[in-house]
């Protein structure tokens, strides 16, 4: 029997229209699960905690899922406990999901809470699972600036998916409509802490401009119009070309941009 991978999906939000859609990273979690299944490394199941009636669930299902389980929850309910129960009941050995939800609090806590409660390690921002051999996975993490890091970890684990992971496959209408949306009734625990919080529509936050703190008018004027200068840089003029190039090369090594 293949070990199980569980992809947890949430309802996303289209950045332009604000409409519901597959969440970018959660879709990638399903995609990764499907790939693992196709490679016969794991068996995929997919679950959502929330409203079973959302048409977005059909979009996830349309990726080729015969069944999608919904842990029925209202908005503002704490989904953690039902999820833990579900993961344990499923005997999953890998849980995949997005880094942050596109709706609601977007705190990114859920995967960490899950991992902690399950006692599993957590891998953040996974780009790719290269292999799983004898229960040990070789995982590529996405780092800033397009960089990648290879990490090896033994199953079971929780992983969050970076946008660098393979994009979710197309959703197909027919299978999506026909998929079995299995509703699992769960006990609901209201999130009383968050109920205290105030939610308001956000205004865009422009990036900070240069801050001119100069006191005098002349200095403010200069600060505004000055050209960027570094000052105090090393200048090699009379050395040989070899020495000059070596200096640059050493600099690059020191800054660790050459490895």
């Amino acid at each position: 029997m293949l070990p199980k991978v569980l992809a947890l999906v949430s309802i996303g939000r289209h950045p332009q229209s604000g409409r519901e859609r597959r969440a970018e990273q959660d879709g990638r979690a399903v995609e990764m699960g499907l790939c693992l299944q196709e490679r016969q490394l794991m068996h995929l199941s997919v679950a959502h905690a929330g409203n079973a009636d959302s048409s977005v669930l059909r979009q996830y299902a349309g990726m080729g899922l015969s069944k999608l389980s919904v842990l029925a929850q209202q908005a503002n309910e704490d989904v953690l406990s039902p999820l833990i129960d579900y993961v344990e009941a499923q005997q999953a050995s890998m849980v995949l999901m997005g880094v942050r939800s596109e709706m609601g609090q977007s705190s990114g806590m859920l995967p960490y809470l899950l991992a902690e409660r399950l006692g599993w390690p957590l891998l953040p921002r996974v780009a790719e699972i290269q292999s799983i051999e004898e229960g040990v996975a070789q995982v590529l993490l996405a780092l800033p600036r397009g960089q990648r890091r290879l990490v090896s970890v033994a199953l079971p684990f929780v992983a969050t998916l970076d946008n660098a992971a393979k994009a979710p496959r197309q959703t197909a209408f027919g299978p999506g409509q026909r998929a079995d949306i299995e509703v699992i009734n769960t006990t609901s625990i209201a999130d009383e802490v968050a109920a205290q919080w105030q939610f308001t529509p956000a205004k865009p936050r422009p990036k900070r401009m240069k801050v001119v703190k100069a006191k005098t008018a002349a200095d403010r004027f200069k600060a505004a119009t000055a050209k960027p200068v570094g000052g105090g840089g090393k200048v090699l003029k009379n050395e040989t070309v070899e020495e000059k190039a070596q200096a640059i090369f050493d600099f690059l090594l020191e800054e660790k941009v050459i490895r």
Binding site: H14, Q16, S17, R19, R21, Q59, G62, M63, G64, R169, Q170, T171, A172, F173, G174, P175
Partner: peptide
């Protein structure tokens, strides 16, 4: 191919998804 297989080539998937989410 599209409704059952979800296999519209190249930009097809993206375009369809856009149409669904943004008209």
């Amino acid at each position: 191919l599209t409704l059952e297989k979800g296999d519209t080539p190249n930009k097809g998937a993206e375009v369809l998804e856009n149409i669904i989410a943004t008209d």
